[in-house]
Amino acid sequence: MHLTHAQQFIHQAQYAKTLRPFLPAAAFAPDPSKLIILLGNLVLLISGFAIASTLSQWNPNLLWLFLPIAIVMGNSVIVLLFSVHALMHGSVIKNPRLTQIISLFALAVWWMPPTLWKAVHNREHHTKTNSNADPDRSYLHNQPNTWGKWIQNQFVPSSEVSPLGLFLGMATAWGVHTFRNLSSVVLFNRPSVEYTPAPFTVSAKERWAIAQEYLVILALHLGVMAFLRFHPLSLLLGYFLPIAIGYAGAMFYIFTNHMLCPMTSVNDPLANTLSLRIPKLFDRLHLNFSYHTEHHIFPGMNSDYYPLVQELLKTHYPERYNLLGAGEAWRLLLQTPRHYQDNQTFTNWAATQSVPCPLNLRELEENKEKAPIC
C-alpha cells in the first residue's frame, strides 16, 4: 500500500537511530561553555536592573538612552530561556543538584518553576509533540470555550487576531502559558482541567516542589521591584519593558515551532515540527534555537551541532524536512486560523473556515511529481 507523507509517520527514535552514526561523539558530550553564556546574561540582566534603579534621577530628555539597554536586557531574557532549556536537557552539565539551582534563578524571569518545566516540557511536550496529549499544542475547535481558549483566539498570531491583540499577545503569551499549566497542576492536578489544551498531572512531591519554587520566584521578582524602589519609571522601562521584549522575542520562535504543523498520533519531528532560516547573528545569540526539528530529534545534543543534523536531514529525508524562512513562517501564521478542526485542518472560533495545514499544502506542491512513499 502506498502512503503519502502526510499519512505515514516515522517515530523520533527511528530518525535518531538513522542519523546517530553520522555524528561525532563530541555532539553528545556536555558543553559547560553554555553555562558561561547563561551566567553572563544573568549578569547583564542584573546590571540592567542596577542602571534602571537610577532612572528617576535622569534628565527626562535623556531617557531614550535607556532603550538600547532595555533591548540588551530583553535579549538576555531570551538567552536565559534558551540556555536553561539546553541545561535542563542535560547538554551543559550533568550535576542534577547544580542544574536545579541554576535553573531556578535562570527561569525566575520567566516565572517558570524548574520542576514544572521538566514536567511540561521535557516529559510531556517532547514525548507527545503536537499530539492530542501535548499541553503545548493549539486548542481543538471542539474543546470547551474556556478562558484559556479565548485568550489564544484573541492574542496568538492567526488570520483572526487584531494588530492590538497580537501586540499584547507577543508580550504576554508566555505568562498565560505558565499560569495555565501552573494553576492546573498546583490547584487541581487532575486530567480533566478544561482550560488547558491537554491537562497533565504531576506527583505529590513534584507538586509541592513546584509550589515552593514559585514562592521563591515571586520573592525574587518582588525583590527586583523593591530594588527599583517601586518607582513607576524604573518599573516601566527597567522591568516591564525588557521582560516584554524578551517574551516577544522568544515567542516569535515558539509560535513557529509547531503551530503551522499538523497534529500527529506518532511523535514524528519532521511532520509536527518546523525549523527556521534566520540570520546567523541570531543563531549565534540564541544558541541555534531556530533548528527546532533537529532539537526534537536529539534533545540532549550540544546545539552547536544542529547545523550538521540539518545537513543530514536534507540528505536523508529531503522530502519530509520542514524548513522555512522566518518571514514566510510568520506570514503563514497570520494567514491561517489557530484551532484544530482535525489533525490536518485549521478552523476559526466560529468554525466558518476550513484551512488545511499549510505545511501539508507546501509538501503536496513540492512532491506532486515524485513517486509516493512506500
Rank of each mutant, 00 (worst) to 15 (best):
I254S: 06
Q152A: 12
P191H: 11
I101D: 00
K368T: 09
L359Y: 06
S131K: 06
A326W: 01
P157D: 04
K149T: 02
N348M: 05
F28C: 11
L45K: 06
P21Q: 10
W330G: 00
H141Q: 12
K368F: 15
N189T: 10
G325N: 13
L241G: 04
Y214W: 15
P199N: 04
L270C: 13
R277S: 09
A250M: 13
H221D: 01
T54Q: 15
V79Y: 00
G223K: 08
T273D: 01
F282T: 05
I46Y: 07
T201Q: 14
D136Y: 03
L67W: 09
R320H: 12
V202M: 06
T315W: 08
F105C: 13
E194T: 15
P269D: 06
D304R: 14
R320N: 08
A371Q: 15
G223V: 01
R284Q: 10
A244S: 15
V216N: 07
F227A: 11
A248I: 01
G165H: 08
M263Q: 10
T352A: 08
L164W: 12
I217H: 04
V216A: 14
M1H: 10
M301W: 07
I93H: 09
N267P: 04
A16N: 07
Y195I: 00
L281G: 04
D342V: 02
Y321F: 14
G165C: 08
P32H: 10
E369A: 14
H231I: 01
P318H: 12
M263A: 06
A198P: 07
E206K: 07
L116H: 03
E194A: 15
I93A: 06
P318S: 11
Q8Y: 12
K128G: 02
Q335A: 15
N130W: 06
K94G: 11
K128C: 02
A226L: 12
I254R: 06
H89R: 12
E294Q: 10
L215V: 09
N267H: 08
T127M: 11
T264V: 08
M170C: 04
S162M: 05
I51V: 15
V309R: 03
Q12E: 13
A86V: 00
L241K: 03
D134M: 07
R229Y: 08
V92S: 09
H177V: 09
T352K: 11
L260R: 01
E365V: 08
I254N: 07
C261G: 02
P279R: 02
F252W: 07
V120A: 11
E194Y: 04
L55W: 07
I373Y: 12
T336C: 14
A50Y: 10
M301G: 04
A198Q: 11
Y15D: 07
W150Y: 10
G90N: 08
H89Q: 13
A209L: 14
M112T: 13
F298K: 03
V193A: 07
L187V: 05
M301K: 05
W330E: 00
Q57L: 14
L23M: 14
A244R: 05
F167A: 13
Q335K: 15
T4Q: 15
N122C: 11
E213K: 09
Y253N: 02
Y239D: 02
I297M: 09
F240Y: 15
L233N: 09
E194N: 09
A26G: 06
L116V: 05
L281P: 00
I51Y: 05
F9Q: 13
L312R: 10
N348R: 08
L364R: 15
V186N: 11
L361H: 03
